[in-house]
Design a binder for these strands. Structure first.
Length: 396
DNA sequence: ATCTATGATTCAAA
DNA sequence: TTTGAATCATAGAT
């Protein structure tokens, strides 16, 4: 390869070396052998072809002396103008491809996402913390979310850093390459018909190529952020049981307000404080509790009794006696719950605003409520009793 | 390994 | 926005 090129090179050089006779002939049209002229032109053209066959580096390396001889060649102006003419004809098609294209929507999407995630755009501040705090707010800030949060931020910062260094690298490479090419083209424009427009166009093409690479970088950065995000969310999703005491308190509240198990905001706050969880966790808990209680009243009844008993024991003896002896409450004391009452279970889904129930915000009323539920009958008509439950109701 | 309990999330409706 | 309902996903029990 090298040898061949060298060979070609020397051949080319040989043909470029002024051959007095030949030039004389050329300068006098009609004089000299036409075949010989053709041969000369062929040589020159071939030499030009050799140049295009060479790599850029090589071309550059050897271009100095070569250019000189070429520039001094007498045929140069003529050839040059011919080439320029040809080029003029093709320039139309070049123009067509030169239109300004609108910004790529995909790229804009990526950019927007990167800014929104705090990878691109202003340092620190807004982006990441805003996004993170938004997700935190959506679920109420858990105590341990702080750890995961900072973890998330650290990872995000890592991604951010990689992204920026890569971006910088690309930019630098792009500039370097562009300068290199522009210089090369400028050099060659002396021997080849290269219009400034073409250089511009070449620069634009290079920019485009590099921005394609940049887009890939943005794409993978976005992916990385998404993965991190989903991991973070998954981590947040990890279930941690509340403390026994916390659950206890929540249940106490729930069963003592069975007629209206919808704690007010203040009540939620207090429960949250007492249980060491967030308000939204309290809301979650009550949401889950209500639906699950309703779905399986049978099982829940046991629990209800348990907590009712607790509440009862907490109440004063006097109140207890009063409550138990309430004529409106058939059944006795802690006797229990009825199973299989179908959708007729008293409690939260029945109107309990009647006179039988007052307030419902103290243990006495809770007790009364529970008691009111006792004395029911099982589906087979037998009186209900503790621990002998029918299969759980399927009240769908 | 499978099952159940339970906290969290999603989505539609009010 | 809150709630009910369905669903997800895991902790803990079996």
């Amino acid at each position: 390869m090298d040898d061949q090129q060298r060979l070609m090179h020397s051949q080319a050089m040989a043909s470029v070396v002024p051959q007095p006779g030949a030039y004389d002939a050329m300068q006098q049209p009609g004089v000299g052998d036409p075949d010989q002229r053709k041969q000369e032109i062929g040589d020159v053209l071939q030499q030009i072809m050799t140049i295009t066959d060479q790599s850029l580096d090589e071309a550059q390396a050897r271009s100095v002396d070569r250019k000189h001889t070429l520039n001094c060649h007498r045929m140069k102006p003529a050839l040059f103008s011919v080439l320029c003419e040809i080029k003029e004809k093709t320039v139309l098609s070049i123009r067509n491809t030169q239109e300004e294209e609108p910004p790529d929507p995909q790229l804009m999407r990526l950019d927007n996402m990167l800014i929104a995630e705090g990878v691109a755009g202003p340092e620190k501040g807004g982006g990441s913390s805003a996004a993170a705090s938004a997700t935190a707010a959506a679920s109420g800030g858990q105590p341990e979310s702080a750890i995961e949060h900072s973890d998330y931020r650290a990872k995000l910062a890592q991604i951010r850093q990689i992204y920026h260094t890569e971006l910088e690298k690309y930019e630098q490479a792009c500039n370097e390459f562009t300068t290199h090419v522009v210089n090369l083209l400028r050099e060659q424009s002396r021997t080849r018909p290269i219009a400034p427009k073409e250089i511009e166009r070449m620069v634009a093409i290079i920019r485009k190529k590099f921005s394609a690479i940049e887009m890939q970088l943005k794409q993978s950065t976005c992916e990385a952020v998404m993965i991190l995000r989903s991991r973070f969310l998954d981590a947040r999703r990890k279930r941690r049981n509340f403390t026994k005491n916390g659950t206890e308190l929540l249940n106490e509240y729930f069963y003592s307000h069975l007629s209206n198990p919808y704690p007010s905001e203040e009540a939620k706050e207090e429960l949250a404080r007492k249980c060491g969880i967030s308000v939204s966790q309290v809301s979650n808990w009550f949401g889950n509790k209500r639906i699950r209680y309703k779905k399986n009243i049978g099982k829940a009844q046991e629990e209800a009794n348990l907590y009712a008993a607790k509440a009862a024991s907490a109440a004063s003896a006097q109140q207890l006696v009063q409550a138990v002896s309430d004529p409106s409450s058939p059944g006795s004391g802690y006797g229990l719950p009825s199973q299989g009452m179908g959708g007729q279970q008293g409690g939260m889904y029945m109107s309990l605003n009647g006179d039988n129930y007052q307030g419902g915000d103290n243990s006495v009323s809770a007790l009364r409520h529970v008691i009111a539920q006792t004395g029911g009958y099982n589906s087979d008509g037998t009186p209900s009793s503790v621990g002998m439950y029918d299969p759980p109701m399927q009240n769908q």
